[in-house]
Computed example of a mutant assay.
Amino acid sequence: MAEEVVLFGAWFSPYSQRVRIALKLKGVQYKYVEEDLHNKSPALLEYNPAHKKIPVLVHNGKPIAESQVILEYIDETWHGYPILPKDPYERAIARFWAKYLDEKYNLPLKIKACWGEEKEREKALEEVSEILQFLETELKEKRFFGGETIGMVDIVANVIGLWLGAFEEASGVQLMKREKVPKLCDWIDEFVSSSVTKESLPPRDKLIVYLRNRFGGANVSK
């Protein structure tokens, strides 16, 4: 009996793209269902009644919600490419940074940094700078957060990989300076140009248009 794998997501969602990257790395075939978040499908509401959000992965009729939970499920279910390290300590560190990213570098912070009032924006930009500096330090001399290959933290950090630059271009606000975080900038270049992520991430131009339409154009406040 063939496995049935279905992903409910949205093209502009970095959380959906995390799952797409993980499935691609594992070589898992799946059906993708694009959701209209203004008119959610009965299937999505049935599979994730608690949060009513994407992404949701349905494996042989069993739903799993929340992107980081899904990533761990994928890693434990399909062998081959390791998403999380095998060493317990390294696994704990990867979970820490993944959690840190989702808690600290969230959508409200990015909106404030790009489109907030002046004082609110300045404070948010300081927070963004601090987060990026921590990530720069964590990268050390590694190619990826996962070492020589893309791992859990890299996949979760896709919110920076493609989306940070798109937020900058959509708003006209600079969130990151290469001279301050050169390793992180090198990581972004390599991450978005990887063959796996290239096929899983949305077109940058389309994403910028979406962000402008949703949040507004360039921030011209002084």
Rank of each mutant, 00 (worst) to 15 (best):
S16E: 02
D189F: 01
S195E: 13
S193M: 09
Q17K: 10
Y30Q: 14
E168T: 13
L37W: 03
R121D: 03
P203Y: 05
K206M: 05
D205A: 12
K123G: 07
T197K: 10
A10C: 11
L7I: 14
H79P: 00
E90S: 15
F144L: 06
E103G: 12
I74R: 10
A65Q: 04
G172D: 12
G147C: 14
Q17I: 00
M176W: 06
W97E: 06
E72D: 06
K123A: 15
G147K: 12
L125D: 00
V28Q: 03
E76F: 09
G147Q: 13
S16F: 01
E120T: 13
Y100L: 12
H79L: 13
E190W: 01
E117D: 15
Q29H: 09
K180H: 14
N219W: 13
L23Y: 04
S41E: 04
P55F: 02
R212C: 11
W115D: 12
A94M: 08
L211K: 07
N60I: 01
E199V: 12
Q17V: 09
Y105L: 13
L175K: 11
W115C: 06
K140C: 10
S200N: 08
P85R: 09
I111N: 03
R214T: 14
Q133K: 12
V128H: 08
F215Q: 11
V220M: 15
L71M: 10
C185S: 07
L164K: 03
K53C: 03
K24W: 00
V220N: 13
F96G: 09
V153W: 04
L25Q: 14
L84K: 07
L101A: 15
G161Q: 06
I155M: 04
K24C: 11
A113G: 07
Y30W: 09
A98D: 13
V209I: 04
E168L: 08
K180M: 05
M176Y: 08
A65T: 15
S129F: 11
